[in-house]
Computed example of a mutant assay.
Amino acid sequence: MDIDAWVWWLIGAAGLGIPLVLTAMPEFGMFAVGALAASVTAALGVGVTGQVLVFTAVSVALIAVVRPIANRHRSQRPEFASGVDALRGRTAVVVERVDGTGGRIKLAGEIWSARTLDADASFEPGRQVDVVEIDGATAVVM
């Protein structure tokens, strides 16, 4: 039984797809796309040299273009904040008078100790304030 070259390239693409899934290395996926391009080239009747050139060119082009983009996205800091970082910028409601020495606010459903950013300012119960930062277990508000 004589198998056409394009079938061999498809088998190669599938073979390169397996380590992509198992190792999560995107380079294998890029080689698999190169093998698919070579399979199309073989189906169009181009010789072995042309098939290998297409495989090489597509694989190298994908690695040269996609890999730097993927690395840039991988190194960026996530867009979400967690813990006390997520509380900065939130609005809270004053529960007990807040001034430069202390007080209490309701922030994210919990009661927090608080103090004002400006030592001379004060906020009465029921007033909404903005959380500027978290200093230990105290919310600094304005």
Rank of each mutant, 00 (worst) to 15 (best):
G34V: 10
K106V: 08
F28C: 07
I134A: 01
A13Q: 06
I18W: 08
W6Q: 04
V94F: 00
Q51R: 00
E79P: 10
I63K: 05
G15Q: 06
T23C: 11
A24Q: 15
R90H: 14
T138V: 14
W8G: 02
A43M: 04
K106M: 10
L107K: 05
P26G: 10
P125I: 10
V60N: 02
M142E: 14
A139Y: 00
A92E: 01
F31M: 11
P19Q: 13
V140Q: 01
D130A: 15
P26S: 14
E124D: 10
L36T: 02
I11G: 07
E79S: 15
L107H: 00
S59E: 02
A38C: 01
W112Y: 12
F28E: 07
A70C: 12
V132S: 10
S59T: 05
G83V: 06
A38I: 02
V131M: 06
I18V: 14
G109W: 09
F31K: 03
V131A: 04
L22A: 12
I63C: 11
R88K: 13
A5W: 02
E133Y: 03
D2R: 09
L44T: 02
F123E: 00
V66H: 14
D85T: 11
S82H: 12
R127M: 06
P125N: 12
H73T: 04
T138W: 00
R74H: 10
A86Y: 12
V98W: 03
V66R: 04
D130K: 13
W112T: 06
D99M: 07
R104C: 06
A5D: 02
E96V: 14
L107D: 01
D135P: 00
A119G: 09
G12T: 10
G17N: 09
I134T: 03
I63N: 06
A35P: 03
R115N: 05
I105H: 01
F55L: 05
D118R: 07
Q128N: 15
I111Q: 15
V33W: 05
E124W: 08
V140I: 09
G126N: 06
V7M: 12
D4P: 03
G47P: 00
A61V: 06
G126H: 07
G45I: 02
W9R: 01
V48M: 04
W8D: 08
T23M: 15
R97F: 15
V66I: 11
S122Q: 04
G50P: 04
G29I: 13
V93G: 03
V93S: 01
G136H: 05
A139G: 07
L117H: 04
